[in-house]
Write a protein that binds this DNA or RNA. Structure first.
Lengths: 193, 193
DNA sequence: CTATTTAGATAGAACGGTCAGTATAGAAAG
DNA sequence: CTTTCTATACTGACCGTTCTATCTAAATAG
Protein backbone atom coordinates (compact mmCIF):
# COMPACT_ATOMS: atom_id res chain seq x y z
CA UNK A 1 0.00 0.00 0.00
CA UNK A 2 1.48 3.27 -1.18
CA UNK A 3 1.97 5.89 1.53
CA UNK A 4 0.15 8.42 -0.62
CA UNK A 5 -2.86 6.15 -0.93
CA UNK A 6 -2.76 5.63 2.81
CA UNK A 7 -2.62 9.35 3.39
CA UNK A 8 -5.58 9.91 1.10
CA UNK A 9 -7.75 7.40 2.92
CA UNK A 10 -6.76 8.84 6.29
CA UNK A 11 -7.48 12.46 5.39
CA UNK A 12 -10.64 11.58 3.49
CA UNK A 13 -11.91 9.61 6.49
CA UNK A 14 -11.40 12.61 8.73
CA UNK A 15 -13.00 15.11 6.33
CA UNK A 16 -15.94 12.87 5.48
CA UNK A 17 -16.54 12.18 9.16
CA UNK A 18 -16.54 15.84 10.10
CA UNK A 19 -18.41 17.36 7.18
CA UNK A 20 -20.09 14.60 5.20
CA UNK A 21 -19.44 13.05 1.82
CA UNK A 22 -21.20 15.47 -0.49
CA UNK A 23 -19.91 18.72 0.96
CA UNK A 24 -16.27 17.57 0.88
CA UNK A 25 -14.82 17.96 -2.61
CA UNK A 26 -11.83 16.27 -4.17
CA UNK A 27 -9.83 19.49 -4.09
CA UNK A 28 -10.14 19.80 -0.35
CA UNK A 29 -8.97 16.26 0.22
CA UNK A 30 -6.02 16.82 -2.10
CA UNK A 31 -5.04 20.06 -0.40
CA UNK A 32 -5.18 18.66 3.14
CA UNK A 33 -3.47 15.43 2.15
CA UNK A 34 -0.74 17.22 0.23
CA UNK A 35 -1.24 14.94 -2.75
CA UNK A 36 -1.47 15.73 -6.44
CA UNK A 37 -4.73 15.33 -8.30
CA UNK A 38 -3.57 12.59 -10.61
CA UNK A 39 -2.13 10.57 -7.75
CA UNK A 40 -5.61 10.21 -6.36
CA UNK A 41 -7.00 9.11 -9.69
CA UNK A 42 -4.13 6.67 -10.12
CA UNK A 43 -5.22 4.91 -6.95
CA UNK A 44 -8.99 5.38 -7.11
CA UNK A 45 -11.04 5.39 -10.32
CA UNK A 46 -13.53 7.88 -8.90
CA UNK A 47 -14.64 9.68 -5.77
CA UNK A 48 -17.19 6.96 -5.11
CA UNK A 49 -14.41 4.40 -5.06
CA UNK A 50 -12.49 6.51 -2.59
CA UNK A 51 -15.61 6.67 -0.42
CA UNK A 52 -16.00 2.90 -0.65
CA UNK A 53 -12.34 2.45 0.30
CA UNK A 54 -12.76 4.79 3.26
CA UNK A 55 -15.81 2.88 4.47
CA UNK A 56 -14.09 -0.46 3.99
CA UNK A 57 -11.04 0.67 5.93
CA UNK A 58 -13.25 2.08 8.65
CA UNK A 59 -15.12 -1.19 8.86
CA UNK A 60 -11.97 -3.21 9.45
CA UNK A 61 -10.50 -0.66 11.88
CA UNK A 62 -13.63 -0.59 14.00
CA UNK A 63 -14.04 -4.34 14.08
CA UNK A 64 -10.41 -4.81 15.06
CA UNK A 65 -10.67 -2.19 17.78
CA UNK A 66 -13.85 -3.72 19.11
CA UNK A 67 -12.39 -7.22 19.11
CA UNK A 68 -9.41 -6.00 21.09
CA UNK A 69 -11.76 -4.59 23.73
CA UNK A 70 -14.01 -7.61 23.90
CA UNK A 71 -11.58 -10.51 23.75
CA UNK A 72 -10.04 -10.01 27.21
CA UNK A 73 -13.48 -10.30 28.80
CA UNK A 74 -14.35 -13.64 30.32
CA UNK A 75 -18.13 -13.73 30.56
CA UNK A 76 -20.68 -13.00 27.86
CA UNK A 77 -22.15 -10.24 29.96
CA UNK A 78 -18.76 -8.55 30.34
CA UNK A 79 -18.13 -8.87 26.64
CA UNK A 80 -21.37 -7.17 25.78
CA UNK A 81 -20.71 -4.50 28.34
CA UNK A 82 -17.31 -3.92 26.74
CA UNK A 83 -19.00 -3.14 23.43
CA UNK A 84 -21.10 -0.43 25.04
CA UNK A 85 -18.08 0.87 26.96
CA UNK A 86 -16.15 1.04 23.68
CA UNK A 87 -18.92 3.23 22.30
CA UNK A 88 -18.82 5.53 25.31
CA UNK A 89 -15.09 6.05 24.83
CA UNK A 90 -15.72 6.72 21.17
CA UNK A 91 -18.51 9.21 21.91
CA UNK A 92 -16.14 11.08 24.20
CA UNK A 93 -13.50 11.51 21.51
CA UNK A 94 -13.17 15.17 20.47
CA UNK A 95 -13.37 14.22 16.80
CA UNK A 96 -16.55 12.20 17.33
CA UNK A 97 -19.16 13.24 14.82
CA UNK A 98 -21.42 10.24 14.45
CA UNK A 99 -21.09 6.91 12.75
CA UNK A 100 -19.64 7.12 9.25
CA UNK A 101 -21.82 4.22 8.11
CA UNK A 102 -24.98 5.95 9.28
CA UNK A 103 -23.87 9.07 7.49
CA UNK A 104 -23.24 7.14 4.30
CA UNK A 105 -26.66 5.54 4.60
CA UNK A 106 -28.28 8.91 5.22
CA UNK A 107 -26.51 10.66 2.35
CA UNK A 108 -26.63 7.96 -0.29
CA UNK A 109 -29.51 5.79 0.77
CA UNK A 110 -30.18 2.56 -1.04
CA UNK A 111 -29.56 4.25 -4.40
CA UNK A 112 -25.82 3.48 -4.24
CA UNK A 113 -25.46 -0.20 -3.39
CA UNK A 114 -21.66 -0.06 -3.33
CA UNK A 115 -21.74 2.44 -0.52
CA UNK A 116 -24.76 1.42 1.52
CA UNK A 117 -23.68 -2.22 1.44
CA UNK A 118 -20.84 -1.56 3.88
CA UNK A 119 -23.18 0.10 6.35
CA UNK A 120 -25.56 -2.83 6.25
CA UNK A 121 -22.73 -5.35 6.46
CA UNK A 122 -21.50 -3.59 9.58
CA UNK A 123 -24.89 -3.84 11.24
CA UNK A 124 -25.31 -7.48 10.30
CA UNK A 125 -21.84 -8.44 11.50
CA UNK A 126 -22.35 -6.69 14.81
CA UNK A 127 -25.76 -8.27 15.32
CA UNK A 128 -24.44 -11.74 14.49
CA UNK A 129 -21.50 -11.24 16.80
CA UNK A 130 -23.71 -10.20 19.70
CA UNK A 131 -26.04 -13.08 18.96
CA UNK A 132 -23.10 -15.44 19.45
CA UNK A 133 -22.29 -13.85 22.79
CA UNK A 134 -25.90 -14.04 23.92
CA UNK A 135 -26.04 -17.75 23.14
CA UNK A 136 -24.08 -18.26 26.34
CA UNK A 137 -27.02 -16.77 28.23
CA UNK A 138 -30.08 -17.56 26.14
CA UNK A 139 -31.61 -20.08 23.79
CA UNK A 140 -31.33 -19.64 20.04
CA UNK A 141 -34.39 -17.68 18.98
CA UNK A 142 -34.17 -15.35 21.95
CA UNK A 143 -30.48 -14.65 21.42
CA UNK A 144 -31.04 -13.23 17.95
CA UNK A 145 -34.04 -11.26 19.10
CA UNK A 146 -32.15 -9.64 21.96
CA UNK A 147 -29.14 -9.01 19.75
CA UNK A 148 -31.20 -6.93 17.38
CA UNK A 149 -32.45 -4.93 20.35
CA UNK A 150 -28.86 -4.32 21.44
CA UNK A 151 -28.13 -3.14 17.91
CA UNK A 152 -31.06 -0.73 18.11
CA UNK A 153 -29.70 0.57 21.39
CA UNK A 154 -26.20 1.04 19.98
CA UNK A 155 -27.46 2.83 16.89
CA UNK A 156 -29.82 5.02 18.87
CA UNK A 157 -27.12 5.86 21.39
CA UNK A 158 -24.74 6.84 18.60
CA UNK A 159 -27.34 9.16 17.10
CA UNK A 160 -28.28 10.79 20.38
CA UNK A 161 -24.73 11.06 21.68
CA UNK A 162 -23.94 13.25 18.71
CA UNK A 163 -27.16 15.26 18.81
CA UNK A 164 -26.87 16.00 22.53
CA UNK A 165 -23.07 15.97 22.83
CA UNK A 166 -23.46 13.49 25.65
CA UNK A 167 -21.13 10.45 25.76
CA UNK A 168 -22.80 9.06 28.89
CA UNK A 169 -25.76 8.03 26.76
CA UNK A 170 -23.79 4.84 26.12
CA UNK A 171 -24.10 3.97 29.80
CA UNK A 172 -27.85 4.58 29.73
CA UNK A 173 -28.08 2.32 26.70
CA UNK A 174 -26.13 -0.37 28.50
CA UNK A 175 -28.40 -0.14 31.53
CA UNK A 176 -31.35 -0.68 29.23
CA UNK A 177 -29.57 -3.55 27.51
CA UNK A 178 -28.86 -5.22 30.81
CA UNK A 179 -32.48 -4.86 31.89
CA UNK A 180 -33.66 -6.44 28.67
CA UNK A 181 -31.20 -9.31 28.95
CA UNK A 182 -32.01 -9.98 32.59
CA UNK A 183 -35.73 -9.96 31.93
CA UNK A 184 -35.26 -12.38 29.05
CA UNK A 185 -33.18 -14.74 31.18
CA UNK A 186 -35.85 -14.63 33.86
CA UNK A 187 -38.60 -15.29 31.34
CA UNK A 188 -36.73 -18.24 29.87
CA UNK A 189 -36.36 -19.83 33.30
CA UNK A 190 -40.04 -19.42 34.10
CA UNK A 191 -41.82 -20.02 30.81
CA UNK A 192 -45.15 -20.29 32.59
CA UNK A 193 -45.04 -16.93 34.36
CA UNK B 1 -50.32 30.54 2.54
CA UNK B 2 -50.03 30.59 -1.25
CA UNK B 3 -50.92 27.28 -2.95
CA UNK B 4 -47.64 27.44 -4.88
CA UNK B 5 -45.67 27.79 -1.68
CA UNK B 6 -47.62 24.87 -0.27
CA UNK B 7 -46.87 22.81 -3.35
CA UNK B 8 -43.17 23.62 -3.12
CA UNK B 9 -42.93 22.51 0.49
CA UNK B 10 -44.85 19.32 -0.27
CA UNK B 11 -42.75 18.29 -3.26
CA UNK B 12 -39.51 19.33 -1.61
CA UNK B 13 -40.37 17.26 1.45
CA UNK B 14 -40.91 14.21 -0.72
CA UNK B 15 -37.75 14.67 -2.78
CA UNK B 16 -35.55 15.48 0.21
CA UNK B 17 -36.91 12.48 2.07
CA UNK B 18 -36.24 10.11 -0.77
CA UNK B 19 -32.90 11.37 -2.04
CA UNK B 20 -31.42 13.73 0.54
CA UNK B 21 -30.91 17.47 0.63
CA UNK B 22 -27.67 17.86 -1.26
CA UNK B 23 -28.44 15.59 -4.21
CA UNK B 24 -31.80 17.27 -4.91
CA UNK B 25 -31.31 20.50 -6.84
CA UNK B 26 -33.61 23.47 -7.20
CA UNK B 27 -34.34 22.57 -10.81
CA UNK B 28 -35.72 19.19 -9.89
CA UNK B 29 -38.02 20.62 -7.25
CA UNK B 30 -39.23 23.24 -9.71
CA UNK B 31 -39.90 20.67 -12.42
CA UNK B 32 -41.81 18.24 -10.20
CA UNK B 33 -43.76 20.98 -8.47
CA UNK B 34 -44.64 22.69 -11.73
CA UNK B 35 -43.57 26.03 -10.35
CA UNK B 36 -41.50 28.77 -11.90
CA UNK B 37 -38.04 29.56 -10.70
CA UNK B 38 -38.79 33.05 -9.48
CA UNK B 39 -41.87 31.90 -7.62
CA UNK B 40 -39.66 29.84 -5.39
CA UNK B 41 -37.32 32.72 -4.72
CA UNK B 42 -40.25 35.00 -4.03
CA UNK B 43 -41.33 32.70 -1.21
CA UNK B 44 -37.96 31.51 0.04
CA UNK B 45 -34.79 33.62 0.08
CA UNK B 46 -32.59 30.57 -0.57
CA UNK B 47 -32.53 26.81 -0.77
CA UNK B 48 -31.49 26.66 2.87
CA UNK B 49 -34.61 28.57 3.83
CA UNK B 50 -36.72 26.13 1.86
CA UNK B 51 -35.05 23.29 3.71
CA UNK B 52 -35.73 24.99 7.02
CA UNK B 53 -39.37 25.48 6.03
CA UNK B 54 -39.65 21.82 5.04
CA UNK B 55 -38.22 20.69 8.36
CA UNK B 56 -40.43 23.05 10.30
CA UNK B 57 -43.54 21.84 8.52
CA UNK B 58 -42.50 18.25 9.04
CA UNK B 59 -42.01 18.91 12.71
CA UNK B 60 -45.51 20.23 13.18
CA UNK B 61 -47.09 17.52 11.02
CA UNK B 62 -45.38 14.74 12.94
CA UNK B 63 -46.20 16.15 16.32
CA UNK B 64 -49.85 16.62 15.35
CA UNK B 65 -50.05 13.09 13.97
CA UNK B 66 -48.44 11.66 17.08
CA UNK B 67 -50.70 13.60 19.40
CA UNK B 68 -53.73 12.30 17.56
CA UNK B 69 -52.55 8.75 18.11
CA UNK B 70 -51.62 9.22 21.74
CA UNK B 71 -54.50 11.32 23.08
CA UNK B 72 -57.21 8.63 22.90
CA UNK B 73 -55.13 6.36 25.10
CA UNK B 74 -56.11 6.26 28.73
CA UNK B 75 -53.08 4.96 30.61
CA UNK B 76 -49.49 6.16 30.41
CA UNK B 77 -48.39 2.73 29.28
CA UNK B 78 -50.88 2.71 26.43
CA UNK B 79 -49.83 6.19 25.42
CA UNK B 80 -46.21 5.21 25.22
CA UNK B 81 -47.11 2.06 23.33
CA UNK B 82 -49.06 4.21 20.88
CA UNK B 83 -45.90 6.17 20.09
CA UNK B 84 -44.06 3.00 19.15
CA UNK B 85 -47.06 1.73 17.20
CA UNK B 86 -47.15 5.02 15.30
CA UNK B 87 -43.53 4.39 14.33
CA UNK B 88 -44.30 0.88 13.12
CA UNK B 89 -47.05 2.21 10.87
CA UNK B 90 -44.64 4.84 9.60
CA UNK B 91 -41.89 2.27 8.95
CA UNK B 92 -44.34 0.25 6.90
CA UNK B 93 -45.21 3.15 4.63
CA UNK B 94 -43.90 2.56 1.10
CA UNK B 95 -42.37 6.03 1.00
CA UNK B 96 -40.56 5.50 4.29
CA UNK B 97 -36.92 6.41 3.90
CA UNK B 98 -35.75 7.31 7.35
CA UNK B 99 -36.26 10.29 9.57
CA UNK B 100 -35.86 13.63 7.80
CA UNK B 101 -34.38 15.20 10.92
CA UNK B 102 -31.72 12.51 11.18
CA UNK B 103 -30.93 13.02 7.56
CA UNK B 104 -30.60 16.75 8.04
CA UNK B 105 -28.36 16.16 11.02
CA UNK B 106 -26.25 13.71 9.03
CA UNK B 107 -25.91 15.93 5.97
CA UNK B 108 -25.44 19.30 7.61
CA UNK B 109 -24.15 18.46 11.06
CA UNK B 110 -23.76 21.17 13.62
CA UNK B 111 -22.27 23.52 11.01
CA UNK B 112 -25.70 24.83 10.01
CA UNK B 113 -27.50 25.80 13.21
CA UNK B 114 -30.69 26.82 11.38
CA UNK B 115 -31.13 23.34 10.08
CA UNK B 116 -29.79 21.12 12.84
CA UNK B 117 -31.77 23.09 15.44
CA UNK B 118 -35.06 21.58 14.26
CA UNK B 119 -33.71 18.05 14.57
CA UNK B 120 -32.54 18.66 18.11
CA UNK B 121 -35.76 20.44 19.04
CA UNK B 122 -37.68 17.39 17.84
CA UNK B 123 -35.66 15.05 20.03
CA UNK B 124 -35.98 17.29 23.06
CA UNK B 125 -39.73 17.75 22.63
CA UNK B 126 -40.26 14.02 22.28
CA UNK B 127 -38.12 13.23 25.30
CA UNK B 128 -39.88 15.84 27.42
CA UNK B 129 -43.25 14.55 26.30
CA UNK B 130 -42.39 10.96 27.18
CA UNK B 131 -40.98 12.14 30.50
CA UNK B 132 -44.38 13.62 31.32
CA UNK B 133 -46.08 10.35 30.50
CA UNK B 134 -43.64 8.38 32.59
CA UNK B 135 -44.29 10.59 35.59
CA UNK B 136 -47.53 8.67 36.02
CA UNK B 137 -45.48 5.54 36.58
CA UNK B 138 -42.19 6.72 38.08
CA UNK B 139 -40.62 9.35 40.29
CA UNK B 140 -39.03 12.43 38.78
CA UNK B 141 -35.38 11.55 38.20
CA UNK B 142 -36.21 8.09 36.92
CA UNK B 143 -38.87 9.37 34.51
CA UNK B 144 -36.40 11.54 32.64
CA UNK B 145 -33.79 8.80 32.62
CA UNK B 146 -36.18 6.24 31.15
CA UNK B 147 -37.52 8.77 28.65
CA UNK B 148 -34.07 9.25 27.18
CA UNK B 149 -33.78 5.48 26.85
CA UNK B 150 -37.09 5.38 25.00
CA UNK B 151 -35.75 8.11 22.72
CA UNK B 152 -32.66 6.00 22.06
CA UNK B 153 -34.89 3.06 21.21
CA UNK B 154 -37.05 5.11 18.84
CA UNK B 155 -34.03 6.59 17.07
CA UNK B 156 -32.28 3.25 16.79
CA UNK B 157 -35.44 1.57 15.55
CA UNK B 158 -35.89 4.24 12.88
CA UNK B 159 -32.33 3.72 11.69
CA UNK B 160 -32.52 -0.07 11.62
CA UNK B 161 -36.01 -0.21 10.13
CA UNK B 162 -34.67 1.61 7.11
CA UNK B 163 -31.42 -0.32 6.90
CA UNK B 164 -33.11 -3.69 7.14
CA UNK B 165 -36.43 -2.79 5.52
CA UNK B 166 -38.14 -4.23 8.57
CA UNK B 167 -41.06 -2.32 10.11
CA UNK B 168 -41.49 -4.88 12.91
CA UNK B 169 -38.37 -3.51 14.54
CA UNK B 170 -40.68 -1.00 16.18
CA UNK B 171 -42.36 -3.83 18.06
CA UNK B 172 -39.00 -5.18 19.22
CA UNK B 173 -38.11 -1.71 20.42
CA UNK B 174 -41.38 -1.48 22.32
CA UNK B 175 -40.78 -4.84 23.95
CA UNK B 176 -37.43 -3.56 25.13
CA UNK B 177 -39.00 -0.31 26.29
CA UNK B 178 -41.61 -2.18 28.30
CA UNK B 179 -38.95 -4.35 29.92
CA UNK B 180 -36.98 -1.29 30.93
CA UNK B 181 -40.04 0.46 32.34
CA UNK B 182 -41.21 -2.60 34.25
CA UNK B 183 -37.80 -3.16 35.73
CA UNK B 184 -37.61 0.46 36.80
CA UNK B 185 -41.03 0.29 38.46
CA UNK B 186 -39.97 -2.83 40.29
CA UNK B 187 -36.70 -1.26 41.40
CA UNK B 188 -38.51 1.83 42.69
CA UNK B 189 -40.83 -0.29 44.80
CA UNK B 190 -37.99 -2.29 46.32
CA UNK B 191 -35.21 0.27 46.79
CA UNK B 192 -33.29 -2.11 49.02
CA UNK B 193 -33.13 -5.01 46.58
C1' DC C 1 -68.97 49.27 -17.21
C1' DT C 2 -64.57 50.25 -18.71
C1' DA C 3 -59.74 51.53 -18.04
C1' DT C 4 -55.77 51.25 -15.25
C1' DT C 5 -53.08 49.59 -11.85
C1' DT C 6 -51.25 45.98 -9.09
C1' DA C 7 -49.57 41.54 -7.65
C1' DG C 8 -48.08 37.03 -8.78
C1' DA C 9 -46.69 33.79 -11.70
C1' DT C 10 -44.27 32.35 -15.95
C1' DA C 11 -40.41 31.04 -19.12
C1' DG C 12 -35.92 31.39 -20.32
C1' DA C 13 -31.45 33.18 -20.50
C1' DA C 14 -27.42 34.04 -18.14
C1' DC C 15 -23.86 34.48 -14.31
C1' DG C 16 -20.37 33.05 -11.38
C1' DG C 17 -18.92 29.34 -8.94
C1' DT C 18 -17.89 24.58 -7.94
C1' DC C 19 -17.38 19.94 -8.95
C1' DA C 20 -15.56 15.43 -10.76
C1' DG C 21 -12.70 13.92 -13.92
C1' DT C 22 -9.04 14.38 -17.97
C1' DA C 23 -4.86 15.77 -20.41
C1' DT C 24 -0.14 16.87 -20.56
C1' DA C 25 4.32 17.76 -19.47
C1' DG C 26 7.88 17.72 -16.27
C1' DA C 27 10.29 16.47 -11.73
C1' DA C 28 11.86 13.08 -8.34
C1' DA C 29 13.52 8.79 -6.98
C1' DG C 30 14.85 4.13 -7.17
C1' DC D 1 15.12 4.04 -17.54
C1' DT D 2 11.06 3.36 -15.45
C1' DT D 3 7.81 4.29 -12.15
C1' DT D 4 5.59 7.41 -9.32
C1' DC D 5 4.25 11.82 -8.05
C1' DT D 6 3.60 16.87 -9.09
C1' DA D 7 1.88 20.97 -11.20
C1' DT D 8 -1.36 23.21 -13.80
C1' DA D 9 -4.62 23.95 -17.04
C1' DC D 10 -8.73 22.36 -18.95
C1' DT D 11 -13.50 20.24 -19.93
C1' DG D 12 -18.28 19.72 -19.29
C1' DA D 13 -21.70 19.50 -16.38
C1' DC D 14 -24.32 21.18 -12.70
C1' DC D 15 -25.46 24.24 -9.04
C1' DG D 16 -27.83 28.22 -6.66
C1' DT D 17 -29.10 32.61 -7.79
C1' DT D 18 -30.32 36.85 -10.45
C1' DC D 19 -32.39 39.27 -14.22
C1' DT D 20 -35.59 40.46 -17.74
C1' DA D 21 -39.61 40.39 -20.04
C1' DT D 22 -44.19 38.60 -20.63
C1' DC D 23 -48.68 36.93 -19.13
C1' DT D 24 -52.90 36.79 -16.34
C1' DA D 25 -56.27 37.86 -13.20
C1' DA D 26 -58.03 40.46 -9.77
C1' DA D 27 -58.59 44.99 -7.57
C1' DT D 28 -59.23 49.80 -8.07
C1' DA D 29 -60.69 54.15 -10.10
C1' DG D 30 -63.11 57.09 -13.10
Amino acid sequence: MSPKKEQLILIATDLFSRHGFHPVGIDRILAEAGVARMTLYNHFPSKDDLIAAVLDRRYHDIMASLRACVEPMASAKEQLRAIFAWHETWFGTPQFSGCLFERALAEFGTDYPNISAVAIRYKKTMTAWMTDMLKALLQEPAAARIASILMILLDGATIDARAFHDPTIATKAWNAAEAVIEQEILASKKPSA
